[in-house]
Amino acid sequence: MTENRSEKAWTGASWGNPFGKLGRTTVLAIIFIFQIILTSVLVPGYFSVWGLLDATRAFVEVGFISLAMTLIIITGGIDLSVGALLALVSVTIGFSYQAGLPLGAASLLGVIVGVAGGTLNGLVTTYFRLHPLVVTLGTFALFRGIAFAVSDADAVSNFPQWFSVFGQYKFGGMVPAQLVVLVICAVIFWLLLSKTPFGRYVYAIGHNATASRFSGVATQKVTVAVYAIMGLMVGLAGLVHTSRIFSARGNAGFGLELVAIAIVVLGGARILGGSGTIWGTVMGLLILSYLQDGLSFAGVRGDIGLTIIGCALILGVFLNENIQKFRK
């Protein structure tokens, strides 16, 4: 029934069919509510609106990246280089500022480096017709390597106070600024994916790249654009990250690619492409991030987070790929 399900996602996710689309997302939303209730009961002192809002600061960055990762995974691709690219963006901002560039210009340069990195991934993938997994594995080492080489295991943290606005400002002392940006981005991505021809092409490529090409979809251009969008979001995330921790260092964003892919997969996107929704990804983001937040609030060591997310990733894909059989 593989074909049928992709069919449903490819028509349903784009143009209504609320049950086909909302089924998974609704279930995830219910799971999320239960999760928050359970954590609040089990961990005394955990629940407060202020606390829950403050926790978003820790995962807005991975949220930006997950939105773009949703597009990439829908096209059947993958991007393993995002954590390394985030480090490169952060190091670019920090070290070009240290070298004398005004901080505003340095921030812009950082975002440009992000877009350039993403575009490079897209161009190499399409031009050489390689699987993005190999290309981004290479650029993963490349970006991280440049970030390490430039920073030479050093860090920049002597930013002026105004720079903290991107990662530490809160509207009314409650709502983190970057959370508002993330919500706006989520809406834009949702519109892009479900209400524009571009979004249709993204699904079409993931569904059947060859057929899309013969139907007149500029598959190469769309693919490069999807990776460039990822670059932009990594640039944004890198800026917020640098501002939030107020420091630029080469080991930033370790394991970020894993978290982002796990979120998207948990949100219901098939790793082989052709299906996935933005709201599913948003629910995946909330569930995984508040799980980590709850664990760390309860005093569990942060290292286990890697293990939990790794398990969630494998389990998520396993269920996605095998549940279809049950639906037969």
Binding site: E257, D303, G305, T307, G310, I314, V317, F318, E321
Partner: peptide, 17 residues
């Protein structure tokens, strides 16, 4: 039926954690 990149990427972090 889990693509090997997902299995082994997950495993990379599970065991490191």
């Amino acid at each position: 039926k889990v693509p090997s990149i997902i299995t082994t990427l997950g495993a990379l972090f599970v065991y490191r954690g």
